[in-house]
């Protein structure tokens, strides 16, 4: 006998619960109840916000390029309006040099200079289809020896004429140095610290 049972467990109160569902030899699991995730979301996995990070040594004023990830869970088109940098607590605020929508699935973990070598189109007016879209940002700073960071970008966008604002979390650190040489271990550590600071800022566990 190869019967299976699938059911749904429903909590009735904070500590008491009930099991509801279908018993029998073949039944499908009931879908998980979920609230409306909204028209655009920062990248998540299994519902958990993901905070990716990137960092690279650059000379003063040179672009450090990273990727910010957003997801459109609906079929309706999302039209991007603008983007602004979100600072990281404890880090000098970076200067926002460039932003664009990537035209290929490739992403930039950490790039130096502009153009980045990955095809893009202007962010303003860009329409996001269903699924993940990748936005490239270029940031920099002027003082050699300092690490300029962004926690992500605040995106303004429209759906069916209504304006929304979303913060997409993805950490970028421009490690500004007098010269760019073979090895900068301090930049990697700066990225880890900035990611930890952002996770704390948005209430994620360390």
């Amino acid at each position: 006998m190869a019967c299976h049972v699938a059911w749904r467990m429903t909590l009735i109160t904070s500590m008491s619960f009930a099991l509801t569902g279908l018993a029998g030899c073949s039944s499908n699991p009931a879908p998980l109840t979920s609230s409306d995730p909204g028209p655009l979301a920062t990248l998540s996995s299994g519902g958990q916000v993901l905070v990716n990070g990137g960092g690279i040594p650059v000379v003063p004023g040179q672009a450090a390029d990273f990727t910010v990830y957003v997801v459109n869970p609906a079929d309706s088109h999302v039209e991007l309006v603008s983007a602004a940098l979100v600072p990281v607590p404890g880090y000098p605020e970076a200067r926002f040099l460039h932003v664009g929508l990537m035209l290929r699935p490739d992403v930039l973990g950490a790039g130096r200079g502009w153009p980045s070598g990955i095809p893009t189109r202007p962010l303003t007016g860009a329409r996001l289809p269903r699924g993940q879209s990748n936005i490239i940002i270029g940031i920099t700073g002027q003082a050699a020896g300092r690490n300029y960071a962004a926690a992500g970008i605040r995106i303004s966008y429209r759906v069916s004429g209504r304006l929304y604002h979303l913060t997409a979390w993805s950490v970028g650190v421009a490690c500004v140095r007098k010269v760019v040489g073979p090895s900068y271990p301090g930049c990697s550590a700066a990225v880890s610290k900035a990611v930890a600071a952002v996770r704390k800022m948005i209430g994620l566990p360390g």
Partner: peptide, 14 residues
């Protein structure tokens, strides 16, 4: 992509 001479890419996953 991570560029040479210090490009760092920290990947997070659920």
């Amino acid at each position: 992509r991570a560029d040479p001479h210090g490009g760092t890419f920290d990947q997070d996953r659920g």
